[in-house]
Simulated scan of single mutants.
Amino acid sequence: MTQLKPFSALVTLSLLALAGCGTQSPAQADVVAPKVSATAAPVPSNLATAIFAGGCFWCMEKPFDEIPGVVATTSGYTGGTLANPTYEQVGRGGTGHFEAVKVTYDATKVSYQKLIDTYWLQVDPFDAFGQFCDKGETYLPAIFYGNDAEKKAAEAAREVLYTRFKKPIVVQILPTKAFYDAEGYHQDYYQKNPLRYAYYRNGCGRDARLRAVWGQ
């Protein structure tokens, strides 16, 4: 039989879920200073990267990790002007950075189009103020393109959605900028802290809203 959690622990987890993404105290985890991601370093010719912002970066890793051909996902910050930002700096606003996920994938096994298709199903494309319970510039949805082909693919997909829903699609399509890895305790959060992750995701209403937009 599963042991029940003490009531005080459940209250703590519920507050965490409602407080927003990334509210775990650094004292509770192994904090690693953020570093600039080595996106510019030489990589095998079959590997490519794609960067997406869809609200809390904790929730953006798992859907891409589950795609055959995806090698790794990394939570981080991008789109802003401050070099090597911390979570606290980004959260306070004013840096221009988004919480984002960098997807490293084998282009011989999975297409960029597949990643784009997966991305849309993780976001509310109509929310111009953030995503789900997280609001503010940090949580705005965006697709960051690295070349003209990616830009065209993202724009074409956005146009298809506009035609389908007949409503403005507010997801931004922006050129790739420097990507900074988030602190270590943010990486693979859904795997390291499954209970806290589940409480946050449920408390934020993410899945309920995704079902309302996209269906089952």
Rank of each mutant, 00 (worst) to 15 (best):
R211Q: 11
I116K: 05
G130P: 04
F129C: 04
F52P: 08
A72E: 15
Y87K: 05
L210W: 03
G94C: 10
R201Q: 12
R206N: 04
C204H: 07
A53H: 05
V90H: 05
Y180L: 03
L47M: 14
L16C: 01
L82K: 09
L140Y: 09
P175I: 00
R196V: 02
G91D: 01
F126K: 01
L210Y: 11
Y189G: 03
E99M: 10
G93F: 05
L10Q: 12
F165K: 03
V160H: 07
F126V: 03
A208F: 12
K114S: 13
N193T: 07
Q89S: 15
I67P: 04
T39Y: 02
R164V: 04
S8V: 13
I169A: 12
G130Q: 05
E66Y: 00
A83T: 13
D148F: 01
D106W: 02
C56D: 00
A50V: 09
A156Y: 04
Q131P: 01
G93K: 05
A156L: 14
Q131W: 08
Y77L: 07
T2E: 12
A178H: 00
T163N: 13
A198T: 14
F57Y: 13
K62T: 06
K35C: 06
A29K: 00
C204E: 13
D134M: 06
F144T: 03
G76T: 12
I116G: 08
K192Q: 14
Q187F: 05
Y185A: 07
G130D: 04
L174P: 02
A53L: 08
Y197C: 07
G184M: 07
D124F: 12
I169L: 11
I169T: 08
G20D: 08
K114R: 15
T74E: 10
P44A: 13
F98P: 02
K62G: 01
A157Q: 14
